[in-house]
Design a protein around this nucleic acid. Structure first.
Lengths: 192, 192
DNA sequence: ACTTCACTGTGACCTTTGTCAACAGGCGTT
DNA sequence: AACGCCTGTTGACAAAGGTCACAGTGAAGT
């Protein structure tokens, strides 16, 4: 079960893991199963784990005063899920993270993060993730303020075809910040 | 001239700098002046420096096919300016960074980044910056997909009152992804 | 002093998108 | 088989925001 994680760490940390290091990781990471619709994180709670998805799919969202959900992340295998702010700074989260399919995770407990970061490949990976996340959210932001709804959808579809397959359209619409009807119409129009 | 930078590094890196380290930094960082409207980075070029603003103000923006500008960052003293993707991965940038006021910078050359990262406080600061940037762009994204134009402006004003003072309204509007007229109307309406 | 230019505000109009509502298909549960 | 529930689609209408045009102000440059 840890192999996808080891692969991931070695790829993004740009270093190989020794057997001893793997063993150390094995002892720290906690396996966890979530059933569809179960929460990984709820608003107001501190996000004490960062999770690595081995199998399944999750969504992260906030809920505004009117009760509307706004999706910030849709994640599948080999993605990390967390509220970075809450996890790093131990502050209450504004977000929910919910399993959208039955999901298997590996959890990185916040209180053992420093131990894990002693492993060079993990440190490198963490660095790279932070970097990549920052770059990706910058691009998403650029799209969001620059492009009309349809274009944003097209970009998204091109970037994450598998996500589009596995989540219903109204979730994608929420991720893009548009109404599900708008997405539906945009799609049918772009077929002609 | 380097004192604001040293303060910044110690604050965000959560470690003090020795005199030897300060000397090392002094030898690597390049002072640079930009006059108003001069470019720090142009689209298509690789961003070979990351700049620390000692005095002045800059804006980072992309230009779409219709020639419209979309502002990604408005920066003043004690902010870093760079295209992270271009800088880290040495790829051509999609962005412009332009001095909005006469500006004094300290430049961190990409080819000497590894040297600088040997200094623990700098490594810590870099980490923290990446973290903070990611968290900030996540919040901005959440606002952008969740809130109507006026609310976004109010949030922004509350978060960065000094930026609002120093940049003209049409730049702020572009940062928020709205037309300058919309912002103008929103402002006059919220006074009543 | 005069011109120019950048910036802001406002009205009229149009486009895009959101909202509300109704409907239909699929799918699992009982 | 019957019932919900989730999902996607479509229409009618409303609201938000964009576009275009014009005017006024003030600062900078000549």
């Amino acid at each position: 079960m840890l192999d996808p994680l080891f692969d991931y760490i070695q790829r993004y940390g740009k270093q190989l893991l020794s057997e001893a290091e793997k063993e150390r990781i094995r002892r720290i990471m906690l396996p966890k199963r979530l059933r569809r619709k179960q929460y990984f994180l709820e608003e107001g709670k501190v996000c004490t784990y960062t999770g690595f998805i081995v199998r399944g799919a999750t969504r992260q969202f906030s809920v505004d005063e009117q009760g509307n959900e706004h999706i910030l992340q849709l994640a599948i295998e080999n993605w990390w899920i967390t509220d970075r702010d809450s996890y790093m700074n131990r502050t209450p989260s504004k977000y929910f993270i919910e399993a959208w399919e039955d999901t298997e995770l590996l959890l990185m407990p916040r209180e053992r993060l420093d131990e894990l970061l002693e492993i060079p490949a993990i440190k490198g990976m963490f660095w790279q993730m932070s970097e990549n996340n920052h770059i990706a959210s910058q691009k998403r932001l650029d799209d969001t303020i620059s492009l009309p709804a349809i274009k944003r959808y097209e970009h998204f579809e091109q970037l994450y075809p598998e996500i589009v397959q596995r989540f219903p359209a109204h979730q994608i619409a929420s991720y893009l910040g548009i109404a599900r009807e708008t997405l539906s119409r945009a799609r049918s129009r772009s077929l002609r």
